[in-house]
Protein backbone atom coordinates (compact mmCIF):
# COMPACT_ATOMS: atom_id res chain seq x y z
CA UNK A 1 0.00 0.00 0.00
CA UNK A 2 1.24 3.41 -0.91
CA UNK A 3 -1.26 6.11 -0.07
CA UNK A 4 -0.24 9.47 -1.47
CA UNK A 5 -1.82 12.87 -0.92
CA UNK A 6 -3.39 14.46 -4.01
CA UNK A 7 -5.19 17.65 -3.00
CA UNK A 8 -7.67 19.06 -0.55
CA UNK A 9 -11.27 17.91 -1.06
CA UNK A 10 -12.40 21.41 -1.94
CA UNK A 11 -9.88 21.73 -4.77
CA UNK A 12 -12.21 20.00 -7.23
CA UNK A 13 -15.58 21.61 -7.92
CA UNK A 14 -18.70 19.48 -7.84
CA UNK A 15 -19.33 17.52 -11.04
CA UNK A 16 -16.00 18.40 -12.57
CA UNK A 17 -12.73 16.63 -13.27
CA UNK A 18 -9.30 17.97 -12.46
CA UNK A 19 -5.81 16.66 -13.10
CA UNK A 20 -3.12 16.45 -10.40
CA UNK A 21 0.47 15.36 -10.45
CA UNK A 22 1.17 12.77 -7.76
CA UNK A 23 4.90 12.04 -7.61
CA UNK A 24 5.20 12.26 -11.39
CA UNK A 25 2.01 10.29 -12.10
CA UNK A 26 -0.97 12.21 -13.50
CA UNK A 27 -4.20 11.43 -11.67
CA UNK A 28 -7.64 12.68 -12.65
CA UNK A 29 -9.97 13.40 -9.73
CA UNK A 30 -13.76 13.52 -10.12
CA UNK A 31 -16.00 15.21 -7.58
CA UNK A 32 -19.35 13.39 -7.79
CA UNK A 33 -21.02 15.62 -5.21
CA UNK A 34 -21.01 13.09 -2.39
CA UNK A 35 -17.91 11.08 -3.30
CA UNK A 36 -14.65 11.35 -5.18
CA UNK A 37 -13.02 9.04 -7.71
CA UNK A 38 -9.49 8.87 -9.10
CA UNK A 39 -8.62 7.69 -12.62
CA UNK A 40 -5.70 7.79 -15.02
CA UNK A 41 -5.97 10.98 -17.14
CA UNK A 42 -6.79 9.55 -20.56
CA UNK A 43 -10.07 8.53 -22.18
CA UNK A 44 -10.45 4.72 -22.17
CA UNK A 45 -11.61 4.85 -25.79
CA UNK A 46 -8.88 6.63 -27.75
CA UNK A 47 -6.68 8.05 -24.98
CA UNK A 48 -7.70 11.68 -25.29
CA UNK A 49 -6.74 13.75 -22.20
CA UNK A 50 -10.03 13.96 -20.32
CA UNK A 51 -9.08 17.14 -18.48
CA UNK A 52 -9.51 18.89 -21.87
CA UNK A 53 -12.14 16.78 -23.56
CA UNK A 54 -14.62 15.72 -20.86
CA UNK A 55 -18.04 17.15 -20.07
CA UNK A 56 -19.63 16.04 -16.80
CA UNK A 57 -23.35 16.00 -16.20
CA UNK A 58 -23.95 14.56 -12.72
CA UNK A 59 -22.38 11.07 -12.88
CA UNK A 60 -22.18 10.85 -16.67
CA UNK A 61 -18.99 11.93 -18.38
CA UNK A 62 -18.87 12.53 -22.15
CA UNK A 63 -15.53 12.62 -23.93
CA UNK A 64 -16.17 15.18 -26.65
CA UNK A 65 -13.57 13.70 -28.99
CA UNK A 66 -15.90 10.91 -30.18
CA UNK A 67 -18.90 11.39 -27.81
CA UNK A 68 -18.36 8.17 -25.85
CA UNK A 69 -19.83 8.23 -22.34
CA UNK A 70 -19.02 6.63 -19.00
CA UNK A 71 -20.56 6.50 -15.55
CA UNK A 72 -17.94 8.16 -13.35
CA UNK A 73 -19.19 6.42 -10.20
CA UNK A 74 -19.04 2.85 -11.50
CA UNK A 75 -16.55 3.41 -14.30
CA UNK A 76 -18.78 1.50 -16.70
CA UNK A 77 -19.32 2.55 -20.31
CA UNK A 78 -22.71 4.17 -20.96
CA UNK A 79 -22.72 4.74 -24.73
CA UNK A 80 -22.41 3.98 -27.59
CA UNK A 81 -23.69 0.41 -27.25
CA UNK A 82 -20.27 -1.02 -28.12
CA UNK A 83 -18.60 0.85 -25.26
CA UNK A 84 -17.40 -2.01 -23.08
CA UNK A 85 -14.28 -0.18 -21.94
CA UNK A 86 -14.21 0.24 -18.17
CA UNK A 87 -12.55 3.31 -16.64
CA UNK A 88 -9.53 2.31 -14.60
CA UNK A 89 -9.55 3.66 -11.02
CA UNK A 90 -7.12 4.19 -8.20
CA UNK A 91 -8.34 3.52 -4.67
CA UNK A 92 -9.14 6.84 -3.02
CA UNK A 93 -9.79 7.90 0.56
CA UNK A 94 -10.45 11.15 2.33
CA UNK A 95 -8.66 12.08 5.56
CA UNK A 96 -8.91 15.45 7.33
CA UNK A 97 -10.23 17.13 4.21
CA UNK A 98 -7.42 15.71 2.08
CA UNK A 99 -7.81 13.26 -0.80
CA UNK A 100 -5.32 10.40 -0.94
CA UNK A 101 -4.88 7.79 -3.66
CA UNK A 102 -3.27 4.40 -3.48
CA UNK A 103 -0.79 4.11 -6.32
CA UNK A 104 0.93 0.76 -6.66
CA UNK A 105 1.89 1.53 -10.23
CA UNK A 106 0.67 3.89 -12.93
CA UNK A 107 -2.58 2.71 -14.53
CA UNK A 108 -2.74 2.98 -18.30
CA UNK A 109 -5.10 1.82 -21.01
CA UNK A 110 -3.66 -0.55 -23.52
CA UNK A 111 -4.80 -1.76 -26.90
CA UNK A 112 -4.23 -5.33 -25.67
CA UNK A 113 -6.68 -5.01 -22.78
CA UNK A 114 -9.63 -4.40 -25.03
CA UNK A 115 -12.47 -6.80 -25.35
CA UNK A 116 -12.60 -8.04 -28.88
CA UNK A 117 -15.34 -6.99 -31.17
CA UNK A 118 -17.76 -9.57 -32.52
Amino acid sequence: MSWKPVCSADAVEQHTLREFDVDGITVLIANLGDEFRAYPPMCPHMEEPLADSALCKLDVMTCTKHLWQWNLRSGEGVSPPENNRHMLMYDLKQEDGQLLVNIESELEYDFDDEDDED
Binding site: L55, K57, T62, T64, L67, W68, Q69, S79, P80
Partner: peptide, 13 residues
Amino acid sequence: IKNLIMEAQLGPD
Protein backbone atom coordinates in the same frame (compact mmCIF):
# COMPACT_ATOMS: atom_id res chain seq x y z
CA ILE B 1 -21.14 20.02 -28.99
CA LYS B 2 -20.78 21.24 -25.42
CA ASN B 3 -23.95 23.32 -25.60
CA LEU B 4 -26.01 20.62 -27.30
CA ILE B 5 -25.11 18.11 -24.60
CA MET B 6 -25.18 20.36 -21.54
CA GLU B 7 -27.93 22.85 -22.45
CA ALA B 8 -30.11 21.24 -25.11
CA GLN B 9 -29.86 17.79 -23.43
CA LEU B 10 -29.03 15.97 -26.64
CA GLY B 11 -27.56 12.47 -26.38
CA PRO B 12 -24.37 11.54 -28.27
CA ASP B 13 -26.39 9.55 -30.80
